[in-house]
Design a protein around this nucleic acid. Structure first.
Lengths: 125, 125
DNA sequence: TAGAAACATAACGTGAACGTCATATTTTGA
DNA sequence: TCAAAATATGACGTTCACGTTATGTTTCTA
């Protein structure tokens, strides 16, 4: 199939397909000479796997580190272990961000109180 | 004074001064003809006020919305009220982000458990 | 009155994942 | 066979606050 069909079936834009090709996430479709690119069902499966991993919150770079395993490890264990490690890292990062935001929030609250206090002094009543 | 002194006393780079001028946060220093720009203590005070507001977490755009009040309202009440409104908005945004991150964290935890479960089934022992 | 120091201005780079033209070529359908 | 549809390729835009060259001009100092 050509890029139009591929993109439609994968529910992405043609731009996305080309972008993935440009960053090496997807092999460019084969072609004869300088004509159009032709893709197979394998490319479609790969695009769908990419989307699935994106929905888990992986970046394209992280997806690039695991995607090949999905198509080389027949047991499916290796890719899942790697994804698991990435998810655990994300969990740590999320918890760290939550902590930072909570810190930021309490600083904000303190500053708000300072301003409120000042304005109450300046404008009694 | 010229930009070198100004930047040094304000503890910013010359690039920062010029950037602020380019986005209208700072009036360009006066000059005669095509020579150098000359600044006064007022500019220095303005840069210090900008820095102070940055440390409260305001973006340059938000600072642009309040900075003039600091130099036109002698009571200082108006700018503080506006900053207070912005800080309250930041507080709401921070709380919202915390909520989203907590949601994200629990989704991550659920996914991690799924993966762990699968891997335990596949590789008993 | 040079050479040095300071300054002015322009322009690209940073990060992620594409969106959105613009232009040129290929393939298809009548 | 010729126009229309699809595709290929390139390049700029998006967010924020500047950092970092690069090149040319002005001011200062010995």
């Amino acid at each position: 199939m050509r890029i139009g069909d591929l993109a439609e079936r994968a529910e992405v834009t043609q731009r996305t397909v080309r972008y993935y090709e440009s960053i090496g996430l997807l092999a460019p479709g084969k072609r004869e000479g300088h004509g159009h690119h032709y893709y197979t069902e394998d490319t479609l499966a790969r695009l769908r796997k990419i989307d699935q991993l994106k929905r888990l919150g992986l970046s394209l770079e992280e997806i690039g580190e695991v995607i090949d395993l999905y198509f080389t490890d027949p047991s499916g264990i290796q890719p899942k272990q790697k994804v698991l490690a990435i998810l655990r890292k994300h969990l740590r990062e999320a918890e760290s961000k939550i902590g930072e935001l909570q810190q930021f929030r309490s600083e904000l609250q303190a500053n708000i109180e300072r301003f409120e206090h000042f304005l109450n002094e300046a404008q009694p009543q």
